[in-house]
Structures are given as structure tokens and as C-alpha cells.
Write a protein that binds this DNA or RNA. Structure first.
Lengths: 208, 208, 208, 208
DNA sequence: AATGAATGAGTGTTCATTCAT
DNA sequence: CATGAATGAACACTCATTCAT
């Protein structure tokens, strides 16, 4: 599958991301997409082949570059815990910018996995896990992280906390008294991120 | 909205839960439900009014009793950390048994909130939060929990970790080498639950 | 598959036959059918499941009864050659009344055979062949028909001649100077039928 | 309409013939043709004007030369019945090599007659008929053929028998136990051709 | 001379819902 | 009280064709 898209394709992908985020994959029709993107209905099939292949392209489009960012992070000259914190920052930032696609990737895909060719996404997840593993093992060999950590369960805690917060946006807006969109986004950037960082740090360092 | 359902309604609700879990709300048609539940297509609209109101009923039906369980937990004679552990156990157990509905509640509902009357669910979440608050404050006054905890963010970490694991089932089955359904379920009951408990304990107790 | 149809289904089947005859199976849309039959577009799928299953139903509907007619013919007290002539009459008459379906059966189905469940039609053809066989063997044992006849090739000559005439209707209207529909139909009933009867008789009796 | 085609046009025509034979005119899309012929989608419209005009060109392309063959046949020094037999051979051979186009010409064209400019094809048929007429009249004047023959109905019997056999290929493969393609083709070349020749001979000679 | 991009109209089918019985 | 029949709207997708280059 090609990974480069022209302007019109990108336009479609952006609209698709927004709508998928708002209404889910099944809840979004290509009519919706074409109407908002102001393109002909046939364009989606024409450019991407089908609605499902549009999703695949969207995944490819929006996840490109993450791997490089992680590799760069690993090679930075930072303490392990600082790398972890930066990685959490990176994750939340990226996902926050690409809400639609990540929501779909993590929560809609299980049922469609037989249909979608998402090996590339699986590879991405494995790569991410490897990066995390690398950082944690570095911390362990430096004697600052506990030895008995189940590394694959770290990511669910990082991303799961964030997603759960996002998915229950109206609820948290109410009980945390976040009245504007910017207050909400600031809360994510500051308080929620800090909470996740604190949680992971405690888990990595605290001796039960 | 009434909270009692007859046998046929319950039958529909159970099938709906299963299918919603498998294919999502939009991905499930009334036809699917009526075929598997072996009832007439018109029954869903007849009994519940519409597909969306069916979902509301499902929420009501499946979340009833949780509040009582939490209140009972609070009143047990246990150490705060033991209460937290038990609460995590309780959550994961319940959600694991009612996968469909919880998945929908947490990840599909935001987009439908304008349509669904989910005040009752919001109330439930607030009640849950209150129970958690109660336990944590008990631990704080006993001097075993840190004072600077943002309590509303504890639930996202507990549930988010679990959901993220669930939603990426195929991925974790592969990298954790869980070959059978029972191995997978055992991993949740033992390892994943322990991971979450450990995480929350570290967060509550560890002084940064 | 059920073989009884209600009024509306029959109405659809009749319209389908006409349109299939005029424009072929692929050339006819269910929109065309529904418009002319003055029914909702969804009715076709609703009643028959799909366009292809509509064709199957049409085959079933229009071929029913033929077998009985042939069996009755066999048992009549007639000379073999008279039975053959009557059988040709019967064929041409039936097919002429159900042009659409027979045309499709003989000329469109080969490419669709993997899709259509037409065992029943194949059975019909075998039954017809058996009836023909029976009559010819009777004639052979009476000493009036030749012994070296390849019976399965008789039907292609009977039906093929008729179909070829039909399919080239405009051509034959021109060269035979058949100006009205009734002239054309009369030509089939009299001259063409006689030609086919004469041909088959010559083939069955004439010693090379 | 021009009757000469360049290499690319011929390539398209060959592919079109194959696909029309397999799936019918309506069942074949320009996309199918262009994909298999490995040419641009727009080429068909560009070279031939439209899909229907492509069919017209195909007819022209594939029927050219037949007339000459027939004229040559007439002028050969053969007995009338031998000419008839040779003509049947010629027909079946040609048609067998150009199955697609003849099938369409005889069975799909009636419905499209308002659209297709097939005067040229009609001329061809008239020419063929004239050749047949010539041979038969020769036989009649030699006293070997009956005088009361309806000549225009001879062709339907020759071609119709063959087409009907072809169109019901799976059926005849089964009941005649023709297991391979070559067995099937041999049956046509030998048995079916002989059957048709015998039939026409009987018709032409046998006095009722 | 040839083609990639683009399109409006059309395809068969499924949807949640309504309604007469 | 319950349901089979029916429907209009929407679905994803394919069609033959056009047009700027």
C-alpha cells in the first residue's frame, strides 16, 4: 500500500478522522464524509477502494513518524524516568491530536480485524512495545526500576487511562468543572498527564 | 423508565449485549438481534421503543446492583488497601461478565449522548466515584494513603487499563502467548488484576 | 424453496419475466421491476432475498406443470409420430407464453450457474429428455422410427430452431414480410411449428 | 464505420469477445475489459466511442470474411448435398471459434436493436441466406432436393441446434458423459455436426 | 494521440421503524 | 398483546463516460 497521498486524499482522510472520532466507523457514512469534504461520493471508493481501505489508509497516514520519534527519544541523553515521562507526554500529545484514528484503532478494530489488513498497525504496536522495553531495561540495569515489571501491561495503563478519560469527556467535564474546551485540553496536558506519569513512576519504582 | 423486564425482554437484552460487544452498537442490526433471540423483528421497537432506547434499557438492566455491592464493600471490616484491591476485583469481574455493555458505555456513548437518556448511568458513575472517594479518604485519615491524590483519575486508570487490554485482545494473546480462551481469562483474573492492584497501590502509597 | 407465491409476489414475477425477456437479466434493474410492478424497491429483496433468487423463483414458478403435461402426453393413445408432433406443439406453446424465462434459462444461465441453485431446472430438463426418450423408443419398437437416433440431440434441434427464430425476430419479420405481431405469432404457430415437426419427422424416419 | 483496426484496438476486441462470451454484454464492464487488456479505461470510449459501439466494431471485425468463404463454397464443384454439409461444417467451425460474438449477436441483440447500428450484420445474414438459397435451388433443379422447402427456416435449425447445445453445455457434458474440454469439442466436431447434417439432409430429401 | 482524474447516475441491498390486524 | 407485512431512506459501491492536459 502506498503511503503518500495527494491533497484531495489528505482532505478526505482528515474529514474521515474527524467523523470517525465523533461517530465511530460504522456510524459514519461515506456520504457524510463526501458531503463535509465537499467531494463526490464516488471519490472515496475511487481513491481508497472502499470504506475499510480508507480506514487502513488513515491508520497508515496518521501513525507514520511515531516510530522515529520513539527511536529518537531512546537515544536522547536522559535519565530513564525522564524518558518514561517524555514518552507519556509524546503518546498523549500524539493521540490527542489524532483522536479519531486512535480511538478506532483501539476500540473498533477488534471486531473488524478479519477484514482489515492491519498488520502494519500490529507491527507499530510491537515496535512501540520494544521501545518501552528498551527504556525500562535501561532503568533496571541502572538499578532505578524494579526488576519484576510486566512491561506489556504498562502501555494499557498509560493509554487506557487517557482513553477512558477521553471517552467519558462529558462526565469529567462535569465533575472536574471544566467549562471550556481549552480548560479541558489544559487539564489533559497538565493534570492528566502528570497523573499518568506519577502512576507509572510509582509502579516502576515503588517496592511493594 | 421502568426497570423491570419480562422474560422475552431479558432474552432480547442478553442477545443485544452479546452482539453489541462483538460488533458495536452501529454494527449490530435489529435483524441480527431478533434472529438470534428468535423473536419477531418488531418486538424490539414494540418493547423498547427504538434501538437506542434498547441500549438505555440494557444499561439500566446490567448496572443494577453494582451500587449495592460497593456500599457493602465500604462497610466491610477491611484495611483500606484491601478494600481498594477488592474494589478492583469487583470492577474487573463485573465488567468481564458484562463486556458488551461496558464497552459501549465507555466508548460508544459519547457520540450518542445527545440522543441517549443516560442520566441514570451518569448517576451510577458518580455513585461509584463517591464510594471510591470514601475508601480513599478512610485510608488517608488512617495515614496509609498519600494526601495529594486526584481521586477522579483513579477510575480511568483502573478501568482504562482493563479496557485497553480487552480491546487489544488479539495483540496481547500473541505477545503474551495466551493460546486458549481460558488462558486468556486466567491472565485477566490473575496477572492483569494484580498489575492494576499493584499500580493503584503504588500510586496511593508511594511518596514521590 | 417454497413454490407458492402470493398475489404481490406473482405480480413481481410477471413483471420480472417481461423485463428479463426484453432486456436480459443483467440489463434489468430491480428499480425497473419495482417501478413497473408499482411496488416498493425493497419488496424484491424482501420477498425473494435477492435479484438472483428472484430469478430462481421465476424459474420455479414458470416451469411448474410442464412435467405433468408431458407425462399426460406419453399416456395418450396416439401414434408415436403424433406424440412427437404434439410434444413440439406443447414446447413451442409453453415457451412462447413464457418467453422471458426460457430465454434466460437457455442463454443467460451458463455464466451464472455457479451462483444460481438450478438443480431443479436441470432435473426438469432431464425429465423432459426422459419423456422424449420414452416416446421415441416406443416408435422404435413399433418399427416406425430409425434405430440409430441420438435422442439428446433432438431437443436442441426443436428448441434451438425456435429460439433462433425468436432471437432474430426483426430479421425474420423483414424477410418473411410479417408486418404485425399477430402475423408473426401466426407464423410461429403454423409455419415454424410445422417446419420443426417436419424436420424431426424426417430425421426420425428417413433412412440415410 | 471503418473496418480496419490497429493492434491495440484488436487487443481490446479480442478481450471484449472473450468477456462478452463469458458474462454477456451487460455483465461485462469496460473496467473488466481494460484491466484484462491492460489498457487505460478511457481507451475503449476513445477508440470506439462507447461500449455499444465497441460491440458493433466487434461484430464487424469478427464476421468479416464469412461472405467470401460462402461464395467460394458455392462455386466449388460439389454435389448440392455435399455443399450443404460443407456449409454446416463451415458455420459450426466459425461460430465455435468466435463463440462470444455469435452468442451476443443472436441472443442479446434483439433488446438493443434500437441502439446498435447493425445493418451491416443484417446484410451479412441476408447474404448468408442468399448463398444457402443458391445451393438449395441448385439441388432442387438437379431434382435431388424437395421443392417445398422454406429456405429461411433452414438456418434457424442449423444454428439453433448448435447454439442450444452450446448454451446448455454443462447439461450435455453431464448426460453425454463428456469429461474433458477436448471430448466436448470433439463431440461438437463429429457427433453434433453429423446430427445437424443428417437432420438437414433428411429435411431436404425426405418426401413426407 | 493518449490518459489519469474525476463525476453523476445508477446498482443491489439493508436499515429501523410503522401499521393493520 | 403481539406480529407479519411493508416501506422510504440510506447504505457502500460500480457504472460508462467526460475532460483537461
Amino acid at each position: 500500500m502506498k503511503t503518500e497521498f495527494n491533497d484531495k486524499q489528505i482532505q478526505i482522510l482528515e474529514v474521515a478522522q474527524t467523523l470517525f472520532a465523533e461517530k465511530g466507523f460504522d456510524g459514519t457514512s461515506i456520504r457524510d464524509i463526501s458531503k463535509i469534504a465537499k467531494i463526490n461520493i464516488a471519490m472515496v471508493s475511487y481513491y481508497f477502494g472502499s470504506k475499510e481501505r480508507l480506514l487502513e489508509s488513515l491508520v497508515l497516514f496518521k501513525t507514520s513518524g511515531l516510530k522515529e520519534q520513539l527511536v529518537n527519544l531512546i537515544e536522547e541523553n536522559l535519565e530513564p524516568i525522564e524518558k518514561i515521562n517524555k514518552l507519556i507526554d509524546l503518546y498523549i500529545n500524539r493521540i490527542n491530536c489524532n483522536r479519531g484514528i486512535y480511538r478506532i484503532l483501539h476500540f473498533e478494530i477488534s471486531s473488524k480485524k478479519h477484514v482489515l489488513d492491519l498488520d502494519s498497525f500490529s507491527e507499530l504496536k510491537k515496535g512501540n512495545l520494544k521501545s518501552l522495553e528498551h527504556i525500562i531495561q535501561e532503568g533496571q540495569s541502572k538499578g532505578v526500576f524494579r526488576k519484576d515489571i510486566v512491561i506489556p501491561l504498562i502501555t494499557p495503563t498509560i493509554l487506557g487511562t487517557f482513553f477512558h478519560f477521553q471517552m467519558n469527556k462529558p462526565f469529567f467535564e462535569e465533575i472536574l468543572n471544566l467549562k471550556t474546551e481549552s480548560q479541558y485540553n489544559n487539564y489533559i496536558k497538565n493534570d492528566l498527564t502528570k497523573h499518568i506519569q506519577q502512576t507509572i513512576k510509582a509502579l516502576l519504582i515503588y517496592e511493594n
